[in-house]
Amino acid sequence: MNWQAFIEVLVGGLLSGVMYSLVALGFVLIYKASGVFNFAQGSMLFFAAMTCAGLVGKGLPLWAAALVSLVVMVALGLAVEKFVLRPMVAQPEISLFMATIGLSFVIDGLAQIIWGSTAMKLDLGVEDMPLEALMDKTGIAVSQFDLLAAAVAAVLVSGLAVFFSKTKVGRALRAVADDHQAALAVGIPLQRIWGIVWGVAGFVALVAGMLWGARNGVQFALTSLALKALPVLIIGGFTSVPGAIVGGLIVGASEKLAEVYIGPHVGGGIEAWFPYILALGVLLIRPEGLFGEKIIRRI
């Protein structure tokens, strides 16, 4: 076996997995706080990428475009909470889920009304090329862009972890995730907390949208990233931030390794469905996911 090639595939896979993690993160935040599987997360990501690329196209420098997009995304998140979810309080979860399906069409449409439907480019100033220093020393090719994405993800996740475990709002957020009624009873303003969560999810969508947009082009296909996040969520657990990261890494690494090492024996193309098989396996063994909160029931 060629170890150099193996490591190259593995590292490449892990790094691309980070990109999946970023998408999954947005789902986890909202699912954790409100028990809603936000079908519109992919659309929010698309909307964010379109807004950022569109503003750059209008001549804004990248940092300014990102900043404006951030404001737009947080506002979008807050608006969704206020106008879609708040009127549906105390409704069954399935109704909320259906509301987010409707929402995804609205956001997709809005993005295309504002920015048109042609694909755009987004240049973050880092190319998808092997890092030369590393290449020279070890002969292993690792994409600079992937490294940037990994660094961004690391910062984002550490920030969220500190936010959840150390701050008052983070604690309130976990409390709301555990028990809405009890959170209300102790005076936690549920709607403000949900507003914050949707705002943060908007921010995460922007980060993921910019990275994916820069890599694959800013186009409608970004909305289907939600499907890529599904096995990540099942493997990592819907309620766990670290789970989203580990799930992403597992999916990224395993699909690339499977493609390279198993693919040739079965005719290739297994990258597309391999994560789902993996997710199915996890579902059978540990339905809450590797890191999901154990379903604790006491009688």
């Binding site: 409390a175 028990d179 009873a185 102790v186 936690i188 909160e293």
Partner: peptide
């Protein structure tokens, strides 16, 4: 209705939110 996944002390602190 304690918050199951929060520690006892974290539970108490949520009361002061």
């Amino acid at each position: 209705h304690c918050f199951a996944h929060l520690s006892i002390e974290e539970n108490l602190l949520t009361g002061a939110y």
